[in-house]
Simulated assay, not measured.
Amino acid sequence: MTDRAAARAAKNALADRLSAQSGVVGIGLARRDTGYVVKVDVADADAAGRVPRDVDGVRVVTEVVGAIRPLRSRTA
């Protein structure tokens, strides 16, 4: 079981490694049955293929979510 502190450290290490990778749109923590995992949201399957399956013994899961764009504000 991975605790939150170990997962947070792995997330920070992975964020440094992936910061220059195109297609990575988000990195966070998620709870699973086995404790915490690092969750990486990517724009497409090509980007998912460049994400490692674990970092420092912490499992990494990816999800293809597509491109992320800011919401446009509406004027009332």
Rank of each mutant, 00 (worst) to 15 (best):
1 M>I: 10
1 M>L: 06
2 T>F: 01
4 R>P: 02
4 R>D: 10
6 A>L: 14
6 A>M: 13
8 R>P: 00
8 R>S: 09
8 R>C: 02
8 R>L: 13
8 R>I: 02
9 A>W: 00
9 A>Y: 00
10 A>S: 07
10 A>K: 03
11 K>T: 04
11 K>C: 03
12 N>D: 15
12 N>E: 11
12 N>G: 14
13 A>R: 14
13 A>P: 00
13 A>D: 10
13 A>T: 15
14 L>Q: 04
14 L>A: 03
15 A>I: 15
15 A>F: 09
15 A>S: 10
16 D>M: 14
16 D>E: 13
18 L>N: 10
20 A>N: 05
21 Q>W: 07
21 Q>K: 08
21 Q>V: 04
22 S>L: 15
22 S>D: 13
22 S>G: 12
22 S>T: 15
23 G>A: 08
23 G>D: 09
23 G>M: 11
24 V>T: 15
25 V>H: 06
25 V>F: 13
26 G>A: 12
27 I>C: 02
27 I>N: 06
27 I>T: 09
28 G>A: 03
28 G>E: 14
29 L>H: 03
29 L>R: 08
29 L>D: 04
30 A>T: 14
30 A>S: 09
30 A>K: 15
31 R>L: 01
31 R>N: 09
31 R>I: 00
32 R>H: 10
33 D>R: 12
33 D>I: 15
33 D>F: 12
33 D>L: 13
34 T>G: 15
34 T>I: 12
34 T>W: 11
35 G>H: 03
35 G>C: 07
36 Y>Q: 01
37 V>W: 01
37 V>F: 01
38 V>P: 03
38 V>T: 06
38 V>G: 07
40 V>P: 07
41 D>I: 04
41 D>P: 15
41 D>K: 08
41 D>C: 10
42 V>A: 14
42 V>I: 08
42 V>E: 05
44 D>A: 07
45 A>E: 10
45 A>H: 02
45 A>S: 11
47 A>H: 11
48 A>R: 09
48 A>T: 05
49 G>I: 01
49 G>K: 04
49 G>F: 04
50 R>F: 00
50 R>Q: 14
50 R>E: 06
51 V>C: 08
51 V>K: 06
52 P>D: 01
52 P>I: 11
53 R>Y: 11
53 R>P: 03
54 D>S: 15
55 V>H: 04
55 V>Q: 13
55 V>F: 05
55 V>A: 06
56 D>M: 02
56 D>Q: 08
56 D>S: 14
56 D>I: 01
57 G>I: 07
57 G>R: 06
59 R>Y: 13
59 R>D: 05
61 V>T: 03
61 V>R: 13
62 T>V: 10
62 T>S: 06
62 T>W: 05
63 E>Y: 14
63 E>W: 15
64 V>H: 06
64 V>E: 09
65 V>D: 09
66 G>S: 10
67 A>W: 10
67 A>Y: 13
67 A>G: 10
68 I>N: 12
68 I>M: 11
68 I>W: 06
70 P>E: 12
70 P>C: 05
71 L>C: 01
71 L>V: 03
71 L>R: 00
71 L>N: 00
72 R>Y: 05
72 R>S: 09
72 R>F: 10
72 R>T: 06
74 R>Y: 00
75 T>M: 05
75 T>D: 01
76 A>I: 00
